[in-house]
Design a protein around this nucleic acid. Structure first.
Lengths: 156, 156
DNA sequence: AAGATGTGGGAGAAAGTGGTTGAAAGTGGC
DNA sequence: GCCACTTTCAACCACTTTCTCCCACATCTT
């Protein structure tokens, strides 16, 4: 199969369950890897805002975020919080010859990102999270009447 | 692995947890050391503004800060406060043959910078802080609706 | 069946750690 | 004020541990 790139607003989409091995290495699902090979280099920035979910940015995409942040004052509290968190969890990593990424240890622990995980496409980056925790979260969050109204208004 | 320096707005980024030994020596994480070896000398200026967090400047970068300060009058209160603090905590140190930096004792005590620490990339310098204290700070600082709005506006 | 994808593991190199020795700085006595 | 002794510090050496790279096998897909 091939990922459509027709006017691609979304670079990555969908869920690819996979597993992180004992050494903390994540195999990038082949479909995502094809997009990466075509569009990006081998460098990635892996970080998180909440410690529960790993965000995997092609390095070029992360740099765009840094550039946006550079426009804010260093005393801007949002910038401080954002950088505190992304710096705390973040690490720059390179893909190995087998298409695997070594996840930062801090993140593996804080988000239980080991064993069975979900790799999700999300716009310009990938999200990696513990599959079991993800499943539980979905079961807990119910659609409210307001949610249904919002969807209706969008015509979904 | 190699750190990209693509149009580097940020010279250093991400977190490398490490530990400061009994003698107060900090091992500079290999990834940061590679950038330093390529771009700077063995001299560093280690100081702090708040006593909680050590700021480790390649000496060349610290000199640039001094030059900027030179543009201000000696009676400028901001300059006085800045120099009072950085002089109080500051020390010039040299990296040893094993790539370690001896942290000034005053800072080790005032910022609990010993045992498990985080070494963080931050623009042109490194930040060293107690890992446990850092973790606690992050857990306390919550994103507010305003923060989310700011990030939304930036498209992050 | 054959290629592509995913998985595990081992060897060698790199990174990290601790300790010891020699020099330098600090202190006290003459 | 100078000399000698003591103590601290820094540089170097050697060992241990971790990690990265690569090879080889298993499994899935077309």
């Amino acid at each position: 199969m091939e990922l459509a790139s027709v006017g691609a607003l979304f670079m990555f989409r969908g869920n690819h369950p996979t597993r992180v091995d004992e050494k903390g290495r994540l195999k990038v699902p082949a479909e995502f890897k094809r997009v990466i090979d075509e569009k990006y280099g081998q460098q990635f920035y892996i970080t998180s805002l909440d410690g529960k979910v790993a965000q995997v940015y092609p390095f070029e995409e992360w740099e765009r975020i840094e550039q946006k942040l550079a426009g804010l004052s260093n005393f801007n509290p949002t910038k401080k919080k954002f950088l505190d968190r992304t710096n705390y969890y973040g690490q720059q990593v390179e893909m190995d010859g087998q298409g695997r990424l070594l996840l930062p240890q801090l993140l593996r622990e804080s988000g239980q990102i080991k064993g069975e995980v979900a790799v999700l496409g999300n716009l310009t980056y990938l999200v990696v999270r513990n599959l079991e925790l993800f499943k539980r979260e979905i079961e807990e969050e119910k659609f409210t009447p307001e949610d249904e109204k919002t969807l209706d208004e969008l015509g979904i």
